[in-house]
Amino acid sequence: VGGGSVSMACKTLAKLCRGQSAPGFESSAAALVTTPMVHRIVPLCKVGKDDTGSKLISLLQKSGQACGNVDTSIMEQASEIDTNARTALAVLPIYRDGRRGCFFDAASNTTFSPADMIEMLGALPDKQRHSAFLFGYPHLLPMMQGQRLVEIITAARKRLLDGGVVALDLNGVSPPAEEEMQMQDGLRNVESLKKDKIIGQALQHTDLLHMNHDELQILTGCKLQGTDDAESKDEELIVKASNLFLKCGVAVIAVTRGKKGSYIACNDAARLGASPAL
């Protein structure tokens, strides 16, 4: 798990996919969950020697103790390198209608570089091959966008078993410049999306792409009405807008819609076959 979303992602994965319980936790509620699926989760992020960083590491360590599968050693080692780093902090309100917001202090995410991430990936033990790389959120990591995001994904693939599965999670998406939004039939066209300055080049390298319906509208220009009467038309628009990402090379896209559930679409057999781990 790399990038800007490690706290929630790691804790959720730890609970859903526990490993071998740590000594003293064998009889805990977490230890009684189903058969282990993911035995090791490694958060890769830039934290500072500050209160927020200490709380984040402690949170992940406690998840690791209970679920037996979160390894914070690499992020702790990285925190010793840049003593001036500050830990980023996000507050994510969830509204009554299921939508969510994001209030974000970028802190050292503004200086978190591809070299930093690739160095962390290189610190993963060779004997412990990993199966997936979850990266979030490129729009909030200014040094990890465009071609540099591709470089990170490429480096991650080399550390994954059979190339693994690469997932890209979006949040904090800002509207592209007007000149970047080349429209066709009410939607951003495929070529324009491929040239998106932040994620465009990475789309063909992404196995799983997640965003919510607000982010889908921002990136594709689709206009959802959000009313019960317009639900059928909204669903059609979501399908058309999601297909743009499949045409850009994404293998699977998931669009969450709050209380209305989610929409998931897969690419063709050729694209799925290009990622053996899928």
Rank of each mutant, 00 (worst) to 15 (best):
A277P: 01
R40K: 12
A9Q: 11
I152H: 04
A123Y: 03
K46T: 00
T83I: 10
S58W: 06
K46Q: 03
D162C: 07
P43K: 03
D82K: 06
V47P: 00
K223A: 13
A254S: 11
G258K: 06
L44C: 04
S73H: 07
V33D: 10
A30V: 10
L56R: 00
A22W: 11
V252I: 13
Q65K: 14
E178N: 12
V70R: 05
L208E: 05
A155V: 01
V173P: 01
E151W: 01
K240H: 09
V47K: 00
L237E: 05
I118T: 08
L246T: 02
F135A: 02
V239M: 06
K158R: 15
Q128T: 15
L59T: 14
K247L: 12
I198W: 03
S21Q: 11
E191R: 14
G101E: 07
T111P: 04
I199V: 14
A107N: 03
V255H: 05
L209C: 03
K223W: 04
T220A: 11
L149F: 01
A177G: 12
S58P: 02
G221H: 08
T83C: 07
P114W: 09
I41H: 01
D229K: 09
K194H: 08
G2Q: 09
E236V: 10
K240T: 08
A88R: 05
G19V: 10
N267F: 00
G122D: 11
F104S: 10
E119H: 15
L209Q: 01
L246R: 02
N69H: 06
V42N: 03
R100N: 11
G249F: 04
E178Y: 08
E180C: 12
K197L: 13
Q20W: 13
R188V: 12
V47Q: 00
D71I: 07
V38Y: 06
L141A: 02
L141Q: 03
P125F: 02
S73F: 03
R40C: 14
K11G: 15
V91T: 13
S27N: 15
S108K: 04
E179V: 12
P142Q: 01
T206C: 08
E235I: 13
T83S: 13
A254T: 14
